[in-house]
């Protein structure tokens, strides 16, 4: 940035020249930033819990699922969006894939306060202000949209204009962003049913106790395709559509105050700039982009 300032004073006369210079310099800064991170890893100055290695956590003990991880639930294959991204970030920081170590961290305990035995946790964790008070998050690596899941026989499948949506009974899991979306954006006229687990909400949906569940698109896709099935494994539910993103996103989770987040953000920016993240999303997450869009409801 100091270089940028001196260039600015030199070229103060011409706005045209200036803008050209800033463009060149800022892309150069991004390259420099990642180079600096690579250098600090080489010299051992990158703050890692285990020297020379990147320790990545996920909810290994409770199962890892496609498309975020590979088919066998093994995170170290580099298959699946999150696994591939973890290796891409490591590579960008100059860490070889054999120096990427995986460790188990349950979803619920990941955003509890305290010291962590991993560098970062990658586990479809939504960034919320509450969670950000006790842990740190990287910038977004996936923007979450909320979607509606309902039984194929429910009226909501055909009638889901912004006004229609108010008249259904919704069910959702306690403390989820889906429940917030219902309350803040759909604002239904009937009392929302609030369940302790998502499985209970699904049971209520199957039993016809609620018309629809609002969950993020990836979860909804799994529910409609594989979870809500009849005794012959035939899908009973469908993903009616998805709402525009409200800014909710998944972030990598760090122990509060971990300075590694700076270099990881640099890597995410670098991987966004060079198209890696877009390519990985196209490779692993394209099923989500096919879900039809729903009319936005103004908050």
């Amino acid at each position: 940035m100091r270089g940028l300032k001196s260039l600015t004073s030199l070229a103060a006369g011409s706005a045209l020249v200036l803008s050209g210079l800033v463009a060149t310099t800022s892309s150069a800064t991004a390259t420099t930033a990642i180079a600096q991170c690579q250098a600090s890893f080489k010299s051992g100055h990158l703050p890692l819990v285990s020297a020379g290695k990147l320790t990545v956590a996920s909810d290994i003990n409770n199962g890892l699922y496609q498309p975020w991880f590979g088919a066998n639930g093994n995170p170290s294959t580099g298959k699946g969006y999150e696994s591939a991204l973890a290796y891409a970030i490591a590579k960008d920081l100059g860490i070889t894939s054999k120096n990427v170590k995986w460790t188990a961290e349950a979803f619920d305990s990941s955003f509890a306060p305290g010291s962590k035995n991993f560098d970062f946790d990658i586990n479809e964790i939504s960034v919320t202000t509450d969670r950000a008070q006790v842990v740190d998050f990287s910038n977004s690596y996936y923007n979450v949209q909320q979607s509606i899941v309902a039984l194929k026989t429910n009226a909501i499948v055909k009638h889901h204009s912004a006004t229609d949506l108010k008249n259904y009974t919704y069910g959702d899991q306690i403390g989820t962003t889906g429940l917030d979306y219902i309350n803040n954006h759909i604002k239904p006229t009937k009392q929302v049913h609030v369940y302790n687990t998502l499985d209970e909400a699904v049971a209520a949906l199957t039993a016809g106790q609620v018309d629809a569940i609002v969950v993020d698109t990836p979860t909804g896709q799994y529910m409609a395709a594989a979870q809500i099935v009849d005794s012959k494994n035939k899908p009973l539910a469908t993903q009616v559509g998805q709402f525009p993103s409200t800014g909710e996103h998944y972030g990598l989770l760090f122990q509060k105050g971990n300075t590694l987040v700076g270099c990881v953000n640099t890597a995410i920016a670098d991987l966004t700039a060079n198209g890696t993240i877009k390519a990985l999303q196209k490779q692993y997450l394209s099923i989500y982009t096919k879900v039809p869009a729903l009319t936005p409801i103004q908050p």
Binding site: V192, H193, Q209
Partner: peptide, 9 residues
């Protein structure tokens, strides 16, 4: 207090 299990608030 157990009825919340059925989604009742």
């Amino acid at each position: 207090a157990l009825v919340g299990t059925l989604g009742i608030l």
